[in-house]
Design a protein around this nucleic acid. Sequence first.
DNA 1: CGTTACACTGACGTGAACGTCAACGGCTCT
DNA 2: AGAGCCGTTGACGTTCACGTCAGTGTAACG
Lengths: 133, 133
Amino acid sequence: MKPEASGDVMTIREMCEAYDVTPRTLRFYEAKALLAPIRIGTRRLFTRRDRARLTLILRGKRFGFSLDDIRETLDLYDRDGSDAAQRDRACELARKRLAEMEAQRAELDQAIAELKEALAHAADEGQAPQRAA
Amino acid sequence: MKPEASGDVMTIREMCEAYDVTPRTLRFYEAKALLAPIRIGTRRLFTRRDRARLTLILRGKRFGFSLDDIRETLDLYDRDGSDAAQRDRACELARKRLAEMEAQRAELDQAIAELKEALAHAADEGQAPQRAA
DNA sequence: CGTTACACTGACGTGAACGTCAACGGCTCT
DNA sequence: AGAGCCGTTGACGTTCACGTCAGTGTAACG
């Protein structure tokens, strides 16, 4: 009898299937302090928090951030009641990240526009080259 | 007497300073067929085309694409009058890339929104924690 | 003509992000 | 108790994207 999701935690297998990653990857992320699953003896149980973080990790990777960058950014989300100085530095870093991401968004928009234009030109050359010659 | 930009080409040094990359990187990109500078004997002269491509390479990297991915995408821009079948495949790939990039932009927007919200919450906790306790 | 300065070509080294493999531990079904 | 199964821990291998270093070439300057 398996409760299938006893108390909102997931085994490593369930995680792998849910997020399409390998066990090795999850262990690697834990070793890098990106995830912190509950340890029952040696085994791992991944919580809601781990899943939220994994989502952000995979997203960050697609944006070209390194795992170290991602960890720093991740830690911004759950550092609630630390001391004020540390929180200030966190906010500082968050604003920096935000600026980076918005710059990246601008570049991405430009890249999309350029690619669209290139496609349009390709369509021109594909449709009307017989008309002139 | 150096013409400084004789005929719109640039030496490897000029390129390095202009784009903040190392010579090794430019040679590596040439070996990977991402760039194709003019070769005077063994020396390289980078054209306008090389510079346009380098801009796109560096941008692609920031989006998390591999150099191989980038080369494929790059080649879409200057394959003018090949045969029709090849052009069709290029357009297909371009549309695929375009879809990827738009998906990435959507994710990026979401990530930005979430980070903004996290920052707003952090500001809440930083401003009014004395009021309740 | 020697020296300086930059450029080139291999060849090997490196860090990040995993993959792979071996050996072991602990359930659980029978 | 034995046989499957995960799951875990090292340890080593791999790929990508370069860095670094040695040796060579060559154009220019004094």
